[in-house]
Every structure is written in structure tokens, then in C-alpha cells.
């Protein structure tokens, strides 16, 4: 187990390093730069800016300097948001995204898992069909549609919910709904199909034949086996959700990290691109390692080597 974790962590560091290197060179091959605008600044002003941030140096030298700095925990200053450091921006904005994201993950699990189980147990009945229809809609409808529709009905028309920012608990309802809609319906489908698989297994029939009640057989025997695909999905889903969604943050004006990812690229804010990419990559890798370890506890048959 310890050996496995050490091996996985080593691979994780390697993965992040490769991601960082590829990103660094790829972003520099894309045309444009942080100081391009409709009104060009003078060549002298541009030269002064580039000199200040070391962008005038050869690319490979910039790369080495960057690597050296991040080893010391220095992710550098944002090239566009003057006066702010990349790490400060990430540390201010990530908790906001993470809070909304974690609530959404919980909602998805709390709603998705039981509903999926119910659909499987009521297979072929009206309630199953209704759940399947809603789940299909959830997977097909993109999040910006969910955002815009909920904003229009609950914010503008009915005036039940505020539309801007995250000041009170009511501000969380629409963003959490929009963010958890897709994962919830995805979990419902996953849960339903794997539960159907499990319910057809011999040991389930044996349990029922021995007189175990439906509830006990479902939650004690079936759920533990049926939930594995959901756990697999949970890893990447959690990483994506807690780092923030560009669309949901933009629509509801949430000061999270999701918007920073996208705007750093359109702004060619090289330092921010690197910082946010390394951050996301690390998070993804770590969450995946954790999910693999959690497997072991849910299903003792799995052998971590």
C-alpha cells in the first residue's frame, strides 16, 4: 500500500511536470501576447513592460527561470492584473469555486445515488421512465442553458432569487443547481445501470431467497458493489467542479477560479496560464490517487500494487 502510494505520487509529479512543460511551450507558440490591444502601446512602453517581466529573454531561459521559481513556491506576478501575484489570485479565488463546487458535488451525490437506485428498483415502471427522461435531458442540456433559464425564471420573472454574486445563502441556489444538474443526472444513469447489473447477480437472489428484506439487501449488499462506477466518475467530476465553471461563474458573477482559467488564455497572461494549469493538473492527479485508494476500502477485492 505505502509502496503503491509512493509510486503514484512519483508519477503524479512527473505528470504535472510534463503538463507544465507542454503548456509553457505551447502557449508561447500561439500568436499574440499579454500587451496586445486595439490601441497598440508604443514600442518603448512594450519593451519596458517585457523587460520588467523577463519576457524579452530567450524562451528556454524563461522556462528554466520559471521552473526554478516554482520550486521555491514562487508562481510569479500576473502580467495583466498588475500588483497581484498568481498564487494570491489562485488562493483567493479557489476557495470560492471550491465551496460552490463541493456543495454541488454533495447535492449530486445525495440526489443522484438514491434516485438512480429507485429507478433501478422500479425498472420499467412509470417512475423509472420519468427519471430516465429527466436524466437524459440533464445530460443533453448544456450548463449555459440551465444557467440562463433558471436566471430568467427564478431571478428575473419570479424574483425569488438574487442573480449577482454570492453574498447570502440564497445566492448559492441557482449556481449550485446549474453546476450540479449535469453530474446529478449522470450519476443517476450510472447508478441505475450498475444497480441493474448487481440486482441480477446470483448473490442478490440468494440474499432475497434467504429472506433478507429489500432495504437491507439493497443498501448492505447491492449498493456497495453498484457504487464503484460512481466513485470512478467522482474523481474527475470533483476536480472539474471545485475548480469552478467558467460559464456558471460568468453568468452569476461568482468571483471564482473558473473564469481566471479562460480569461488568462484570452489575455495571454502567461504567468496566470501556467499557475492555473499547474494547479488544476496537481488537483486532478491528487484526486485520482485518492479515488484509487478509496476503491480499496469500498471493494476489498481490489489489490493496489
Amino acid at each position: 500500500m505505502t509502496k503503491y502510494i509512493v509510486k503514484r505520487l512519483f508519477m503524479a509529479v512527473l505528470t504535472v511536470f510534463v503538463v507544465a512543460t507542454l503548456t509553457f511551450f505551447l502557449m508561447n507558440t500561439v500568436p499574440g501576447g499579454p500587451y496586445e490591444a486595439e490601441k497598440s502601446i508604443s514600442p518603448q512602453a512594450k519593451a519596458a513592460l517585457e523587460a520588467k517581466f523577463g519576457l524579452d529573454k530567450p524562451l528556454f531561459e524563461q522556462y528554466l527561470t520559471y521552473l526554478k521559481n516554482i520550486l521555491h513556491g514562487d508562481f510569479g506576478p500576473s502580467l495583466k492584473q498588475r500588483g497581484r501575484n498568481v498564487i494570491d489570485i489562485i488562493l483567493t479565488k479557489f476557495p470560492v469555486s471550491a465551496k460552490v463546487g463541493l456543495i454541488s458535488v454533495m447535492v449530486s451525490l445525495i440526489v443522484g445515488v438514491p434516485v438512480g437506485c429507485i429507478a433501478a428498483m422500479k425498472r420499467g415502471k412509470m417512475s423509472d421512465s420519468a427519471i430516465i427522461v429527466i436524466a437524459t435531458v440533464g445530460i443533453a442540456v448544456p450548463s449555459f442553458v440551465v444557467c440562463s433559464l433558471s436566471m430568467y425564471f427564478f431571478g428575473v420573472k419570479l424574483r425569488w432569487l438574487p442573480t449577482v454574486g454570492l453574498t447570502t445563502w440564497k445566492h448559492y441556489i441557482m449556481p449550485v443547481f446549474s453546476l450540479s444538474f449535469y453530474p446529478t443526472t449522470y450519476i443517476v444513469r450510472l447508478m441505475r445501470s450498475s444497480m441493474l447489473d448487481v440486482l441480477g447477480q446470483d448473490y442478490m437472489r440468494t440474499a432475497r431467497a434467504k429472506g433478507v428484506s429489500q432495504v437491507v439487501s439493497l443498501f448492505k449488499h447491492a449498493l456497495r458493489n453498484a457504487i464503484l462506477p460512481v466513485v470512478t466518475y467522482l474523481g474527475p467530476m470533483m476536480a472539474y467542479t471545485i475548480t469552478g465553471s467558467f460559464i456558471v461563474e460568468k453568468v452569476f458573477t461568482i468571483p471564482g477560479l473558473g473564469g481566471e482559467f479562460v480569461s488568462s488564455i484570452t489575455n495571454r497572461d502567461y504567468m496566470m496560464i501556467m499557475g492555473t494549469t499547474i494547479f488544476l493538473a496537481t488537483l486532478m492527479v491528487v484526486i485520482n490517487v485518492v479515488v484509487d485508494i478509496v476503491y480499496k476500502f469500498i471493494d476489498p477485492r481490489i489489490n493496489l500494487k
Binding site: M151, V156, P162, T163, V164, K250, V251, T253
Partner: peptide, 19 residues
Amino acid sequence: WLLIEDANASYSAFQTGEA
């Protein structure tokens, strides 16, 4: 000063009286 990026979001804020 609401720092809204999306025009539809700012329009909603105006309609609801938030801005």
C-alpha cells in the same frame, strides 16, 4: 461597482433592480 462580465447577467441585474 458590480464587476459583471456577461451582458445577459448585467441585464438581469438591471431588471431585478440589483443594478
